[in-house]
Design a protein around this nucleic acid. Structure first.
Lengths: 134, 134
DNA sequence: CTGCGTGCAAATGGTTTGCATCCAC
DNA sequence: GTGGATGCAAACCATTTGCACGCAG
């Protein structure tokens, strides 16, 4: 789980395609959705490979793995942390357009934690779900 | 999934105990850990009941369900949103002591979302994990 | 050539659910 | 007495993993 940079990194067609597809969209797809997107290009790719590469890419900071409130994890082709807007009903996640002042922590407030980054997520009900609820 | 307040709410020994135990600790236990805590008092309680009640309580806003970056969900006996500190290695979650200015969103920035709340989570490596890594 | 990456399928593990029974109101 | 809540166990479903083969370097 630690950072190991001493292995040869290979650029397979699968890995390449997964990253390209993820960067192509502005949504924040689940692994399953990435699988669907990539399968249109590489029909024989397996879901396991998608998971492995999404893991690989996010552990290197190339993409962002969004933990979030829902069950499934979602992935973001933009590696810089930025605030998200999540619908608690349908689980959809989008980028927040309004610029937000990201809170940061002084060293003496971090309680000894290192490599700190900050996740900000606004959770609410999206217009579509608000409609279908009444 | 919508808010329904027209049903009789019953206070079972199990529900009562789960809430009491959750409020008793300052940690943010997983459902499994809550199960262990409550089982010391009600040995015959089932894990399913714990999940059902944690669900029930968090859907009513009595406790907080922390989505977070890890796999398992964690629960917080304090219902008011407040920033958390999560270790990316061991998954432990604690409250952030330093007061943080919680970002908020003006209506015109919310992109039509309603019932907005803001989750802020600092993710880093806790002192214990930092040690055992080298 | 080497060994990292893949496809496939089975295994895992947290969470949910169906059903008969129980008990709070 | 009645219907919400429980215990138990099976079902779910996203994610992970073992293994033999394939291909990038």
């Amino acid at each position: 789980m630690a950072i190991e940079s001493n292995k040869t990194v290979r650029l397979s067609r699968q890995r390449e395609t997964i990253l390209a597809e993820l960067r192509k969209v502005k949504t924040h797809p689940t692994a399953d959705e990435v699988y669907d997107m990539v399968r249109r290009i590489l029909p024989r790719i397996s879901l396991g490979t998608v998971y492995r590469n999404l893991d690989f890419l996010s552990s290197r900071g190339v993409v962002l793995r969004l933990g979030g409130a829902g069950t499934q994890k979602r992935f973001d082709g933009t590696p810089e942390p930025h605030p998200h807007l999540r619908c608690s009903e349908c689980g959809r996640v989008e980028d927040l357009m309004a610029p937000i002042h990201l809170p940061s922590l002084a060293a003496e407030e971090a309680m000894g934690y290192t490599s700190l980054r900050c996740d900000v997520e606004f959770v609410g009900i999206c217009p579509m779900c608000a409609n279908s609820k009444m």
